[in-house]
Amino acid sequence: MSFEANTLISWPAFTQARNELGGGFGRILGYFREDGVKSVAVIEAAMRALNAAAMVIPAHTLKGEARQFGADPLADLAEVIEMIARDCVEMQDTPDEALEHIVRLRPLFEETLTLLEREANPIVARKPVIGGGFGRRAVPTGFGEE
């Protein structure tokens, strides 16, 4: 599943979260990564075990944390899984209906996380230093240069 960056993240919501969290933004994003990895794994394991009750809390957690960063498609998918799981618990049914959504969950989480982390920690493109630069030996660029 491939999405455009503009459809995976609401950048105004991301910017608002970054501004509100200030210096703690990177730490909170790290928690999102850790919690998200765990939540996705628990949801997948619960699906394999046909245990709807075990899906509710991790789906709910993922939904809330994703919304905090403006990751609305991920939050929406987690909400669908949560609602299916809650209905299955109430009806004492297996969560078969959740399977197609859970299959999409990990790729969407990973792609979303990649975008969030890229925006939070942009890599600065560096130009090669001509003449070697400080602490570097200059590499000859033409015949007869040393």
Rank of each mutant, 00 (worst) to 15 (best):
F3H: 15
A5F: 05
T7G: 07
T7F: 01
L8N: 04
I9K: 00
S10L: 04
S10G: 09
S10M: 01
F14A: 07
T15C: 04
T15Q: 15
A17I: 13
R18S: 09
N19T: 14
G22R: 12
G24F: 13
F25P: 07
G26L: 13
F32G: 14
D35Q: 15
D35C: 12
A41R: 14
V42D: 08
A45P: 05
M47R: 08
R48I: 04
L50W: 04
A53G: 09
M55F: 07
P58R: 10
A59H: 05
T61K: 13
T61H: 02
T61D: 08
T61M: 08
K63A: 13
G64T: 05
G64H: 04
G64Q: 05
Q68S: 15
Q68M: 15
D72N: 06
L74V: 03
E79Y: 05
E79A: 14
I81K: 03
I84R: 12
I84C: 06
D87R: 10
C88R: 03
C88G: 07
E90W: 03
M91V: 13
D96M: 10
A98I: 10
L99M: 12
L99E: 06
H101V: 05
E110S: 06
E111Q: 15
E111T: 10
L113T: 02
R118V: 02
V124I: 13
A125L: 08
A125F: 02
G133H: 05
A138T: 00
A138H: 03
V139L: 07
P140A: 12
G142D: 13
G142A: 15
E146M: 02
E146I: 02
